[in-house]
Simulated assay, not measured.
Amino acid sequence: MNTHFKTYHPYASPFDPCKPILEKAYSTPPNLYMGFQPPNLPQFTPLEALRAGTLWKAFYDPWFSPLEPGKGGLPQ
């Protein structure tokens, strides 16, 4: 199953002076998982489209930080 949040584990050197971040997360846009744009996709109104950054609702991605689990980020 495709998810919009991916995680990876960067290399942590034993000689780093700071505590390493063991897991990092990033968001992938929804258009990566659509091979083509189907006809008759639902659309935002013009004002909503300006706020969302896209005309089509299927391509909207409200990115939230992984540190904000209540807003759709990664579960802690």
Score class of each variant (00 low, 15 high):
7 T>W: 03
7 T>D: 08
7 T>G: 05
7 T>C: 09
7 T>L: 07
7 T>S: 15
8 Y>M: 03
9 H>C: 12
9 H>Y: 15
9 H>S: 15
9 H>W: 10
10 P>L: 04
10 P>F: 02
11 Y>T: 15
11 Y>G: 08
12 A>V: 05
13 S>M: 10
13 S>E: 10
14 P>E: 05
14 P>G: 11
15 F>R: 12
15 F>Y: 15
16 D>P: 03
16 D>M: 13
16 D>I: 05
17 P>N: 11
17 P>L: 12
18 C>L: 14
18 C>D: 12
20 P>I: 08
20 P>R: 04
20 P>W: 05
21 I>M: 07
21 I>W: 10
23 E>M: 13
23 E>S: 08
23 E>K: 11
24 K>A: 06
24 K>V: 04
24 K>L: 09
24 K>W: 02
24 K>R: 14
25 A>C: 13
25 A>M: 10
26 Y>F: 13
26 Y>Q: 04
27 S>W: 07
28 T>L: 08
30 P>T: 04
30 P>C: 01
32 L>R: 13
33 Y>R: 10
33 Y>S: 07
34 M>D: 05
34 M>Y: 15
34 M>C: 11
35 G>Y: 03
35 G>I: 04
36 F>Y: 11
36 F>D: 04
37 Q>H: 09
38 P>H: 02
39 P>W: 00
39 P>T: 01
40 N>Y: 01
40 N>Q: 03
